[in-house]
Design a binder for these strands. Sequence first.
DNA 1: CAGATGAATGTGTACGTTAACGCAGCTCAA
DNA 2: TTGAGCTGCGTTAACGTACACATTCATCTG
Lengths: 341, 341
Amino acid sequence: MEKSITIKEIAKLAGVSIGTVDRVIHNRGRVSQETSDRITHIAAEHNYSSNVNARKLRLNRNLRIGVMLPSNSAFWENHKNGMISELDQLDSMQLEFFMFEMNLDSMRNTLQGVFEANLDGLILAPVFEEGNALLLEKLETTSFPIVLIDSKIKGWNDYLSFIGSDNYQSGKTACHLLSLGLEELKTYIVYHSIADEQKGAINARVEGLKAMSLQWPNHQVEEVNLERNKITQEELADIINEQSRPTSIYIPHSSTFLLEKLLTQIDRDKTRVLGHDLISENAKMLESNLVDFLLYQAPIRQGSLAISTLYRNLILNKEIATDQPMPIEIISKHNMEFVKR
Amino acid sequence: MEKSITIKEIAKLAGVSIGTVDRVIHNRGRVSQETSDRITHIAAEHNYSSNVNARKLRLNRNLRIGVMLPSNSAFWENHKNGMISELDQLDSMQLEFFMFEMNLDSMRNTLQGVFEANLDGLILAPVFEEGNALLLEKLETTSFPIVLIDSKIKGWNDYLSFIGSDNYQSGKTACHLLSLGLEELKTYIVYHSIADEQKGAINARVEGLKAMSLQWPNHQVEEVNLERNKITQEELADIINEQSRPTSIYIPHSSTFLLEKLLTQIDRDKTRVLGHDLISENAKMLESNLVDFLLYQAPIRQGSLAISTLYRNLILNKEIATDQPMPIEIISKHNMEFVKR
DNA sequence: CAGATGAATGTGTACGTTAACGCAGCTCAA
DNA sequence: TTGAGCTGCGTTAACGTACACATTCATCTG
């Protein structure tokens, strides 16, 4: 943390005024090539970086950070809360939310808003895959840093940082927890009311679980989509209860709480249940022992990390890791209250 | 984030110069009571808070943060790394380490160093209980903020913030994981080479596990202290293997890795194993399936949180939560690589 | 050759806070 | 009576950056 050289010192070394140095540093032109080179060289040599406080004092304005998320989903509330509370702990930044629906028109509109807003940075959850082409068009022309959250965009890696967890791996973790201590197992992967924006994550999780289950011949896996298979929760409960083997239910998305009927009617002594995401409805189900574990990607922390990432980049001028993987947390009734931070 | 009033504005409102306002704010005296009251009143009314950037620019010095930890323990390495990497992401602070041994003389010496060092803040792990009286003496006279990490000090609550996890609760979590899916269970709590500074934590964990096990009559718990009971790992392995019931081994401290002999000789199909702390030796044991789970209190995050807490308090002048509980993380082979951050 | 043009560079000021310094006017002991 | 010291206050120079504006000087135009 040695002090960096100042523009004043550079000016003296280069034999010019600080105005000239300033023009070079912000390349605002109007400086001869010669002088410019000399200054650039000196700055590099002493690895100049601008004094954060002086700059902030001088500019005396908030950076405007855009947040572009799907609207109307409990899933993103925690991310938002994380961002807001982190912001509250920092300074010099303000948030502007741009919510989009999962369709092309909405995406187009929202994008227009985002890129007219004259932002200094953007936090983006590119979970609407069909809209990514639209996104890419715009993203390629931007100059401000972009933090991707939850998902990446195929074929584009000009982002500042990615924050998210590895869903494939969390599927494997799920498998491990479900089969722990058992000699044979039948696992039902149950889908119900899946939100579009979660589809990518769900697929990866299921693939992870399946891959892991193959390593162990006594573990049979079956997928049940309540809507598509036209089966009620009661009917499924009956099927599960008829199984002679130990069974487990894996719900690879956040709407675990919608399966209350199913879970109250199965034989919980014989069936282990694992869901995703610690939203409050799901927390209640842990509490009442309807669910054994939830896997959790710490959305509050993801949100706060997204903000602090931009703070560190834009305000403190720090290097940022391209990938910031989030841990997959295993939540049981007993550690849940400590996880919410 | 509306802008606060500036001293210049206060000065104008109070009809005095900024110098006077400054003296009042930093109560450096030499101001009449009348004037002082008037200024205080105006400042409060407009809830003045000093501009962080201007102050930092003016002072232009690093805050000196002391870190007081037990020396020579792998357990604290992660905390330190967390602090250092967080510091690297911030600015205006520098660390000074003061390590102590677990005896009164060392504690006395270290304390002397700490309080002669003219610090602006302190991060303290008060894990040497016998030394707490010594600590208290000094702490009561200090003016700088203190962040407690890992443990609190009985009868003293004048700290800025406490960062740590609930060991009693993590014992309960352990019990839950160990008994999951089983109809009866014999759990061996195994102690081996306990470091003094972990004793408090260990007791709480064991209490948590025992309390939880009482809720379930088929769960019998036995404690084995390898040193005190003069029993070898091989002998214990034999005893465990003779059990007809399913068994589990709970190691409530970080030196799980020292029990390799025991763990290689037990029947792993019948015995579930749970340890603490994701130090690299333990990680290897997860990897090689000698251990099923590790409970983890995220020391890297504790370290970085301690630093950012002081940053937010000292530099950004933010309110700080008195308690910052850390989640108890459950680590298995499959999510471990994502936890190390 | 006066005057305009424009490129290259210097100057001045502001951002808000801090703290050293200075200046009256006063008290009080030598 | 003098001057040392105190009280209450104002003034001012930094801190480093950013940017509007001013200055210089060479070149070009009519």
